[in-house]
Write a protein that binds this DNA or RNA. Structure first.
Length: 568
RNA sequence: GCGCUCGUAGCUCAGCUGGAUAGAGCAUCAGGCUUCGAACCUGAGGGCCGGGGGUUCGAAUCCCUCCGAGCGCGCCA
């Protein structure tokens, strides 16, 4: 319907502008007015034309209305306010679309692959394999997974990828921490250094390794080889834990990509050579950092990438003083690798604390590819964990660190996932453990699920009453004329557009706000109107309506990774 | 000091590629269950959209500036 109206207006505009050669017809975008008096759809096309045509928007709108050939369902259109064209549709003319929703089922709102489909690589979470994930990682995970669902839903081919930072100094720290705990478990008295990882999970890993390996042999083996072995075993253990924790909120990946692999395969060295050949690398010393007190600053000659030529603030080191590659060097190699794998587009979801990193990666890719190959980076702001409104103090060292797994175990996957999706990623998020456990107004996830369960209950009731649910095609839905019914119908019809917008803007939270509003509309309808009544025709029509509502709620929740229960 | 993000009702947030009277939940107050699930609904009060300037027919939305908060700023990842 919307498309038909836009088409009609576009055609009218073309005719109108035939008298004005050279003027570009503005794109017709219809929206749903907030107020019922403003009709079912509104167009503002006349207003931007006012300046070009040197006529008042009202005059132009009047001309358009003279020319336009509306589709049959249009009852009337009038000019209002500063020049809006408000379109009224015939009573209940949109209700027939309910049948399409029911027929499409889980597919409603989804688009299949088309010429516009892109092959997208979406990298998210990528938590270091040195310990458990915290709630901030959880937010990134939930946002990333939902975004992947949104992008797939509109027809893109999405690969979910996890970059494992299994290289660098932190792995040495991890190996050392585990080794110290192993020795402690074997009876040695160890003073645990501050630089080591303190968590209990380190002890667990140590115990597991001892169970599978001969301690005496480990003691006597070459220290370097031992560190490598224990490091790898510890990474594997942590990754298994991370994967299990992600699984607990229903998240999995298509690809786990190892940073270590980039080093061992020579990709990092090759990349640095490539950059050297391009002449964007030099040896030099960086100026001291600004605004941060560095007492022992000593300039160091190192291999620098001239990222300032590509939009960065300062040049960035590719190699450390000892000659080994920096994390940055590996990360460029990683992004280059993704590009070589043939993706049309890559999206990275990072925590806000990595914000300072965006410019250099994009600069690097610009230097390397000389095309539009920069990743879209989505920065997810912090999560402030509270309990009854009071901040939960977290300190890794004091052992009061709250992990994502603990939160999920306490409040449940659905509540965690939905609450993480109710805000834009740019906004910091307060997550209250107690409020998220409450099954009441403070917790939107149950509000939405309740609407779904309520519809299931009505359908059960109808079945008890012996009402056979008619095929949607055989039902006359034109009787759904009340305000509440019309509202629900028009809201249901915007679902595909909402999804498209969420995809194009990379804003999956729109699905959550959408489904909350839909649930609200349903609850209002429920209180005003009975579905199962004496009037058999009306009953069938309303059953079609609520089935469509349940379907869309279920589809939306599925994208968010939240269950749509029949009973609660 | 510089960069990124944010600032909207008492609280938490939508609305931001400019459009009509700025919305929702919580909290407060007043109502609603003999009737399909009250984990719900209806109504009321509550706003210099952080301050100021600009762009224009029109600004919460765009630009500049100031204030405030978070994050980041050498050879960690």
């Amino acid at each position: 319907m919307k498309q038909a109206l836009e088409q009609a207006l576009s055609t009218a505009l073309e005719k109108l502008l035939a008298d004005h050669p050279g003027t570009q017809a503005p794109q017709v975008i219809l929206n749903r007015p907030k107020q019922k008096e403003h009709g079912d759809y509104a167009a503002n096309v006349a207003m931007p034309l006012a300046r070009v045509l040197k006529q008042s928007p009202q005059q132009i709108a009047a001309r358009i209305l003279e020319i336009v050939q509306w589709p049959e369902a249009v009852e009337g259109a009038e000019i209002a306010g500063p020049g809006f064209i408000n379109i009224r549709l015939q009573q209940a003319s949109e209700a027939v679309a309910l049948k399409t929703i029911i027929k499409a089922g889980e597919q409603y709102g989804r688009a299949s692959r088309s010429g516009e489909s892109e092959k997208i690589n979406l990298e998210f979470v990528s938590a270091n394999p040195t310990g458990p994930m915290h709630v901030g990682h959880g937010r990134g995970a939930v946002v990333g997974d939902a975004l992947a669902n949104v992008l797939s839903a509109v027809g893109h081919d999405v690969q979910r990828e996890y970059y494992i930072n299994d290289a660098g100094a932190q792995i040495g720290v991890l190996a050392n921490s585990v080794w110290l705990r192993m020795r402690e478990l074997e009876g040695e008295s160890i003073s645990f250094p501050e630089s080591a990882y303190p968590g209990d999970y380190i002890v667990d890993i140590a115990r597991d390794i001892l169970a599978g390996h001969d301690y005496q042999k480990l003691l006597t083996m070459d220290a370097h080889a031992r560190e490598k072995l224990i490091g790898q075993l510890s990474i594997d253990a942590n990754m298994a834990m991370i994967r299990a924790d992600l699984n607990a909120i229903g998240i999995g990946f298509d690809v786990y990509f190892s940073e270590q692999g980039l080093h061992s395969s020579g990709s990092v060295t090759e990349l640095i050579e490539r950059l050297q050949a391009d002449g964007v690398v030099y040896t030099g010393a960086l100026p001291p950092p600004k605004g941060k007190e560095v007492s022992d600053y000593t300039p160091v000659e190192q291999l620098l990438f001239r990222t300032t030529d590509f939009g960065d603030d300062v040049d960035r080191p590719l190699a450390k003083q000892d000659g080994t590659a920096t994390y940055f060097a590996a990360d460029i190699a990683y992004h280059f690798d993704k590009h070589q794998r043939g993706f049309d587009r890559m999206i990275d979801i990072w925590g806000a604390d990595h914000g300072g990193y965006v410019a250099r990666v994009q600069a690097a890719m610009k230097a390397l590819i000389q095309a539009d190959a920069q990743p879209d980076v989505i920065l997810v702001q912090m999560v402030n964990l509270t309990r009854d409104g009071k901040p939960v103090k977290m300190s890794k060292r004091a052992g009061t660190f709250v992990t994502l797994r603990e939160v999920v175990d306490e409040v449940g996957s659905d509540a965690v996932r939905f609450n993480f999706m109710t805000r834009r990623v740019e906004s910091q998020l307060d997550f209250d453990l107690e409020a998220s456990k409450k099954q009441n107004d403070e917790n939107p996830v149950y509000y939405v699920q309740y609407a779904h369960a309520r519809i299931a209950a009505i359908l059960r009731k109808a079945a008890e009453e012996g009402i056979a649910i008619a095929k949607a095609d055989d039902v006359d839905v034109s009787v759904l004329t009340s305000h509440e019914e019309q509202r629900l119908i028009s809201h249901l019809l915007t679902y595909p557009d909402m999804l498209k917008k969420a995809a194009s803007q990379l804003e999956a939270y729109r699905v959550a706000t959408y489904v909350m509003r839909l649930a609200a509309d349903f609850h209002s309808f429920y209180h005003k109107h009975k579905v199962v009544t004496e009037d058999a025709g009306l009953t069938q029509a309303r059953i079609v309506l609520i089935r469509a509502v349940a379907q869309v709620i279920s589809n939306a929740l599925s994208i968010l990774g939240v269950s749509a229960p029949e009973r609660m």
